[in-house]
């Protein structure tokens, strides 16, 4: 994941440097920073990067125009940086095809979290196997490996597990979990969700009544806990 090529486009050199530095310090090895939108477009014509981080307000060519050019060429994920106040509505629904956006100023860890989430989603690793406390989960095959047994996950269990995995070590609310299964109208699905969680625990946990991997955060939701060091 950290070997993906990231292109940063921003006219402000200081911002450019700090973003580059944030990614490099987090272990990303191929980070390219460009202060001119036109030059950046030229490099994209030559070789398409894996991810673009794009400032909205730039002279000569703004982020939206840049994005249109890029979209005519490729579906590469784009995260836009905005100083707000500028065409904020354009972001609603990501009409122009940006994958996500972040308002300046942002916390470095927020940027890293968003980018890694996009990368994970866009470039799913092959043979992704998550190691949990008492089992492993093969994401691609949608199966649990436990004591040399292979237990398949149902479609809904998989959807729920994947949502938790995307937000590993973070609380995912009951509502957002229901939403990933049923869409926007999830009223009354809570009890069904609890059943799915119970089945997931039976497959993953050593002691499903005292779960350590899929933990309940009372009233709020659930959290998938990565195996601690």
């Amino acid at each position: 994941m950290k070997d993906k090529e990231i292109l940063i486009v921003d006219d402000d050199l200081e911002i450019l440097n700090i973003i580059k530095s944030i990614f490099e310090n987090d272990g990303y090895s191929k980070v390219k920073a460009m202060s001119s939108a036109k030059k950046a477009l030229e490099t994209i014509y030559e070789k398409i990067p894996d991810m673009i981080i794009l400032d909205v307000m730039m002279p000569e060519m703004d982020g939206f125009e840049f994005l249109q050019e890029v979209r005519s060429l490729t579906k590469v994920p784009v995260l836009m940086l905005t100083a707000k106040g500028e065409a904020e509505d354009k972001f609603s629904g990501f009409e122009l095809g940006a994958d996500d956006y972040l308002v300046k100023p942002f916390l470095p860890k927020e940027l890293l979290f968003r980018v890694s989430a996009i990368l994970r989603r866009t470039y799913p690793e092959k043979n992704r196997v998550i190691v949990l406390d008492s089992a492993k989960v093969d994401i691609d095959k949608a199966e649990v490996i436990r004591n040399h047994d292979k237990i398949p996950l149902t479609a809904k269990e998989y959807t729920i597990f994947f949502k938790l995995y995307e937000n590993i070590d973070k609380i995912v609310t009951i509502g957002s979990l229901c939403q990933t299964v049923c869409g926007d109208f999830w009223d009354g699905y809570e009890t069904t969700l609890m059943t799915h969680i119970r089945h997931l625990r039976e497959k993953i946990e050593d002691n499903p009544s005292k779960p350590v991997s899929i933990v309940t955060v009372k009233g709020l939701g659930y959290k998938l806990v990565s195996k601690g060091e």
Binding site: I18, S21, A83, K84
Partner: peptide, 18 residues
């Protein structure tokens, strides 16, 4: 004013975080 504060604050937060 809030727009002009955004860029310097981004830089500050970035380096302080590093």
């Amino acid at each position: 004013i809030s727009h002009d504060i955004r860029t310097p604050l981004t830089i500050m937060l970035g380096y302080a975080g590093e």
